[in-house]
Amino acid sequence: MRKQRIIIVGGRKKARFLIKSFLQNQIDVTVINDTAQFCEELAEDFPSATVACGDGTKPYIFEDLNIESSDFLIALMPSDADNLISSQIAKYQFNVKKVYCTVNNPINVEIFKKLGISNVISSTHIVSSMIEQLVILQKIDNYIPIETGQVGIFEITISSNSEVISKSISEINLPKQSIIGCIIRHGQSIIPKGDTILMLNDKCVVLVNECDKQETINLLTKGKGV
């Protein structure tokens, strides 16, 4: 199989961390950075990566590195404008298959999406949602946000004092925008129907829209007399 190729533009610690993990996964890594000294360090530390020193928003650099039809590009520069332009050049002029653009200003997530870059990552967003997740995590086992958190999948275990024990799914009145997709009981998975009865220690895998998330969690964790 052809080796996948990834281009990392800009970034310091993030770039270093990514290079290391991609190389471990047998991915061909090309780095573009505008600091000569940092490039030298990288070239020394990662002999198997291609390191280029230059401005990652200039089409000629991409051309020199022959990045046409690479698999991924990640733009990690400090300026959001630079990242947008680098991503657009990669996507439209060099047909890079998947482009990830990082932004500092969270408002740019939506704006850049409208400008054609579908994968926009805001670290501010991620950190805040991680904190939010930590708060919710006290009640639930696992949470996977989808489409920047518009929809989420979480696992929740029915505890001994829960009000929903011995009730059927149709009885508990789940919010409209949520569904229990699967119940794990004694290691066996059950795809529930409306008449499935919830039992102690059932692990429910719930798919929920952001707007009904809190209500669904409250419903499934609310205890008798607590």
Binding site: T57, S79, A81, D82, L84, I85
Partner: peptide, 8 residues
């Protein structure tokens, strides 16, 4: 700045 001009 070219990139800023383009973004704006």
């Amino acid at each position: 700045n070219d990139n800023l001009n383009l973004m704006v």
